[in-house]
Design a protein around this nucleic acid. Structure first.
Lengths: 118, 118
DNA sequence: CAAGCCAACTAGGTCAACTATGTTGGCTAT
DNA sequence: ATAGCCAACATAGTTGACCTAGTTGGCTTG
């Protein structure tokens, strides 16, 4: 980690990973190194690495899959101004749709056993 | 706080604060309650509150001033890109959450209700 | 009275430990 | 050989502690 620039470590790491992705060093679909590996690479604690990854996750640059890893998002960077409005509209309707479906299914559940896993 | 929705506390708190700001309950220039107060209000740990505030800070909705407090961004220009970006972030987060919950419930619902697709 | 110190607040960053949950692969017992 | 268990690893979330640093207001002291 890094320079004593006063810039917080978790931001520096997020910057670096963002750079690696944009630069193609980490291709879409590829997994990032594990949290522990990153912590060692950057000589930082697990917490700051998790914070850094959380930022990228929040940005949609990366998707975490529990138990497997964190993967570079396939879908590129739409996120341009004109696309933003479009995406807002699409997301808003998606939320409404999902909410409706969820409520239906949840209502159709009497008191099902939550242990019902495969 | 901690509604049993499985949605992480730090996201629930971020959502709630975002809502308060958008709803005008917290006006631009006004300070949020202190970290400690929020922690008590939401019955969460300081860490979780700090994570939530960090998200809003990252979204530009709010600015922290060390030693004083965290203030709702004045900016002015309503309905600008930052506003859209904020909503995109919030919506994307909500979509991910709802999708996960839906898939869980639907998967746990083998043929309990054949009428509702599946 | 005024200068300066100090205690109590604030945000922000970092760390370590624990829980939970999902995935995978290897071992074992049938 | 196959089914099931289990250990090791992964992300994710939470908590609590400790530290830095800025701000404020009250108290002490000169």
């Amino acid at each position: 980690m890094v320079k004593k620039t006063g810039r917080p470590g978790y931001l520096q790491i997020a910057d670096e990973l963002r750079e690696r992705i944009r630069g193609g060093l980490l291709a879409p679909g590829e997994p990032l190194p594990s949290t522990a590996q990153l912590a060692e690479q950057f000589d930082a604690s697990l917490s700051v690495v998790k914070m850094a990854v959380g930022i990228l996750r929040n940005e949609g640059l990366v998707v975490g899959q529990q138990g497997k890893g964190v993967f570079v998002q396939e879908d590129g960077q739409p996120e341009q101004d004109s696309d933003l409005r479009t995406e807002v509209t699409a997301l808003r309707s998606a939320v409404q749709d999902l909410t409706r479906r969820l409520e239906q299914v949840e209502a159709a559940l009497p008191a099902a056993d939550p242990k019902t896993r495969n």
